[in-house]
């Protein structure tokens, strides 16, 4: 952890409300809100990749969006290279937009269906003045080859591309502004296994060649493990466990992390006989359990879990939100 932090998120709270009706605006009432993210703090060191895992409804994508300023936090701070977005002057905000980019999950909706791939990328270059006008065509080709697409793709429209090719094109558009920080929101979840491996390798190569810092949001543990230096496991809007990727995978200290890891199907030659590792479902964010949020599904929940929200440090940079994180696990 010698590298300077690129991104620091502190005590982030993001709430969602139903849109206000005209009557609400006139009377000044606010509909009830849901806390999608509830007090999350995390740090991403320059050049590192932080993996953010969790199931749907855990708030992991909301954090990614909040970092990019796509939703307004109710509380907390998000600082990129020491500065919050709101503290930046217009030039600083434009710079932020160049430095921090996003890659999306759904390759079918992440490109404007009406724009050819070449013009979509050229537009970005032109708008931000990345290269002089006469060099734009060449720069588009360079970006395409950077993500492993042939130059002929310039003329294609998104619907003529396969899912993997679209994902590469979206990546080229994001890289056009020469960002240093990428938020990747489930970048391979919609791809076939063989294509998924290609894109993961490409992301690994780009990270090395361009020195990118990444926040890698995904639900698939194998994918996150493959990509991340550090890991944060989310459940119901809070980080349950975080630490160096290896440590968390080798020695998970939170029952939820352990449940997640054992629920992932493994390559095996023996047919499964066991019962499911968890019971029940993730509670509604409108009705969050008191104390520890995981206690309703936790196999080792105790009375204390109902009343006291836990926080335990279990190793260097390794934190687990469980009262029993430090106690050895009984087999």
């Amino acid at each position: 952890m010698s590298a300077a932090p690129s991104l620091v998120v502190e005590d982030l709270v993001v709430e969602f409300a139903k849109p206000r009706s005209l009557a609400d605006m006139v009377t000044g009432t606010h509909p009830p809100t849901v806390r999608a993210v509830d007090g999350v703090s995390l740090t991403v060191a320059a050049g590192q990749t932080l993996g953010l895992v969790g199931e749907s409804g855990s708030g992991k994508s909301t954090i990614g969006k909040a970092i990019l300023g796509l939703n307004r936090p109710a509380r907390g701070s998000i600082r990129f290279e020491g500065k919050a977005f709101a503290e930046r002057d217009p030039a600083g905000q434009a710079e932020f937009r160049r430095r921090v980019q996003m890659v999306f999950q759904d390759p079918y909706s992440s490109l404007n269906p009406r724009l050819r791939i070449g013009s979509a990328i050229a537009e970005v270059l032109r708008f931000h003045g990345i290269v002089p006008e006469q060099e734009i065509a060449g720069e588009v080709l360079r970006l395409l080859s950077l993500v492993g697409l042939p130059g002929a793709m310039v003329e294609r429209r998104p619907r003529e591309l396969s899912g993997g090719q679209r994902q590469r094109a979206g990546l080229a558009r994001a890289l056009a502004v020469r960002p240093t920080f990428l938020v990747l929101d489930e970048p391979v979840a919609a791809l076939d296994v063989s294509i998924q491996a290609q894109v993961l390798n490409l992301l690994g190569d780009l990270r090395r060649e361009l020195g990118l810092t990444m926040l890698f949001v995904a639900h698939e543990l194998g994918v996150v493990r493959h990509m991340s230096d550090r890991l944060a496991v989310m459940y119901l809007g809070q980080i349950m466990e975080s630490g160096p990727s290896d440590a968390v995978f080798r020695d998970p200290r939170h029952p939820y992390t352990r449940a997640l890891l054992s629920a992932v199907p493994k390559m095996t030659t023996v047919k499964r006989q066991r019962a499911a590792v968890t019971q029940g479902e993730i509670p509604s964010p409108l009705n969050i359990p008191s104390g520890c949020r995981f206690r309703t599904r936790c196999p080792m929940a105790q009375p204390v879990c109902e009343t006291v929200p836990p926080e335990v440090t279990v190793g260097p940079g390794h934190v687990a939100r469980c009262h029993f994180a430090a106690t050895p696990i009984n087999p």
Partner: peptide, 22 residues
């Protein structure tokens, strides 16, 4: 709500351009 509209927002394009061109 589609990602391509979010993408141009993330790229810092002004609202008018996002609505009219994209």
């Amino acid at each position: 709500t589609k990602d391509y509209m979010t993408a141009v927002k993330v790229l810092g394009f002004p609202q008018r351009r996002i609505i009219l061109r994209h």
